[in-house]
Write a protein that binds this DNA or RNA. Structure first.
Lengths: 316, 316
DNA sequence: CCAATAGATGAGCAATAGTTCACAGAGGGA
DNA sequence: TCCCTCTGTGAACTATTGCTCATCTATTGG
């Protein structure tokens, strides 16, 4: 076909696209105007799209978030990804992602058929649970991925499982163990006892795992909260630890370390690569490396973060 | 409703719009993603449009033309308006509009039910006729709005009616009169004689009138072609003539003059305001005033022009 | 000049989108 | 507190769009 006809076809496509998207006519009307069949009008509109004669511009902060989410999803092969606008007044605030996590939990728990939700550590997870809409789902199960007895023997501040169970009437399985045991042997013994094995079995069948992501630096949450000592933290950092999920420390490639606190950790180990829906939730410049490593190591297959963090992850 | 919810609704609208227009999901998919009913997803997409959160941009020269055409249509209440890209290599070229006029004629003549097409003067009209696709329509009628005997007594170069009849097999009604008679009385006598009255009657029932628009300046086509003398032209200009359609001169408000050559003109007078489809075809900076006046005076209710001319008309 | 072939076309059907309606819940005023 | 209004909702229906397939039409190569 001659170049002139080709051009004329594109002209028509542009005309059709204009009439369709900008003037808001139906394809039937356009067909009449351009003196072609409706099928052809439809093809012209398609062509206009295919040739990128027309572009869409979304003038809204959300647009950038959607774009970033799509790129993260593509780049790390994620099943789920949400990016919320960064709260400029409080850039490290997890309010935004907590709201989205709560939404995710709501959606999951709304199901009439029984579902199992497993929860990890993290302030965002905690905040999300607080925002979950109460709903009566006695057949659901909520299971903890981490020991909820803190170093001093009291039930941990992070009793997210109990809170979520309150709001849903679901059966819940807290993990009645300290975060760390005193030795690898003891850990191995404890995780074999009946109540713990049961928790592990339920967790293995979880439909959704929602976990926080912690960075391993001097301000590491596991240390701040008193779960690991300064020395233990530094030892892990020496071993290359850059982040942790449910206490499991991993290096910059997202490989779980086989040393230090990881040997005494009672938390249920992550599935690698993550196969069941495992959503990480975290924001903040300090966590960028940790999040990126977790994504690369496929410790998680979903992410909820904010715009600034998402951008930083992609720009690494 | 609280401002916060309002904002959140717009956020969702933006999300929905993004997913719909940019990611290309169906509203059903979006409904599932956003955890709302499909109907609500549709409302969000509508809202996104209504709030102008999303805009369309057509990256094609045609876009500007469509835009101009829409504005002209709106501003002058036109039934039909087409704007073609200006040929930068030949800005006064009427090739573009001739093609569109031909297309319009094709479309009109394609009809199986008999139609009557009336033709005026003008190079664009002439060129359009040459481009009409031959088609056999013996029941159509082609009628001339202007006398086709030029000053020297020969058949005019502008025998468009004959040409178009050749291509369609339609009956045709040339107007066997000189362009101008020698006096008003003579003109009034001539237009009453049977063959002329017949042409006039056919023309009155025309489904489409396609006319050129001439400017009344020193390069006026009616003068260049020898239909009016220099003195006659100047006299009309003194009377305020700014343009002419089928020889009928009008002033800057589009009012037909009741003086000079208009009194001796044999052309069928325009219907004012134009009620049957009357399309003016003209391009060029020199014609801008004439076209604008014709539009304002409602001597025409349709226009085919080019981008540069359209822009100039709107900017007056 | 003819056959092969790629691309275009329109009919008809399946999928998707838009609209209407009745209703439910939130919020505000008497 | 009660009622009213107003917004938002989903169901159901209708309109529009997208797609497939059989057919047709140009163009190119032999």
């Amino acid at each position: 076909m001659a170049a002139e006809n080709e051009k004329s076809r594109l002209d028509d496509a542009a005309r059709a696209g204009w009439l369709y998207f900008i003037a808001g006519h139906t394809q039937d009307e356009i067909a009449k105007m351009l003196q072609v069949s409706r099928a052809s009008a439809q093809r012209l509109v398609s062509l206009c799209l295919a040739e990128r004669l027309i572009t869409f511009r979304l003038e809204h902060p959300i647009a950038a978030c959607m774009e970033l989410a799509a790129r993260l999803k593509e780049r790390f092969d994620l099943g789920h990804c949400e990016v919320v606008p960064t709260d400029l007044a409080a850039p490290q605030s997890n309010a935004g992602i907590a709201e989205r996590c709560a939404n995710l939990l709501d959606a999951t728990l709304r199901s009439e058929t029984p579902v199992i939700v497993a929860l990890g550590t993290g302030r965002a997870v905690r905040a999300a649970v607080e925002r979950v809409t109460p709903i009566d789902r006695p057949n659901h199960q909520i299971v903890s991925l981490v020991g909820n007895i803190s170093a001093d023997g009291s039930a941990s501040f992070y009793d997210t499982v109990g809170r979520l169970a309150d709001r849903t009437g679901a059966r819940h399985y807290p993990m009645p163990l300290p975060f760390l045991m005193s030795s690898e042997d003891e850990r191995n013994k404890m995780v074999r006892i009946e109540p713990i094995a049961k928790v592990k079995a339920v967790a293995a069948k979880a439909d959704l795992r929602l976990v926080g992501i912690g960075q391993m630096d001097q301000k590491a949450q596991v240390h701040v909260d008193g779960f690991v000592t300064r020395d233990e933290l530094f030892e892990m950092m020496r071993q290359g630890a850059i982040g942790e999920i449910t206490g499991w420390a991993y290096d910059s490639k997202g490989r779980l370390l086989k040393a230090g606190t990881n040997k005494r950790l009672t938390s249920i180990p992550p599935e690698v690569p993550a196969k069941t829906t495992t959503i990480g939730a975290a924001v903040g410049a300090a966590k960028v490396s940790a999040i990126a490593a977790a994504l690369n190591g496929r410790l998680i297959n979903g992410l909820i973060t904010d715009e600034a963090t998402a951008r930083a992850i992609l720009e690494r």
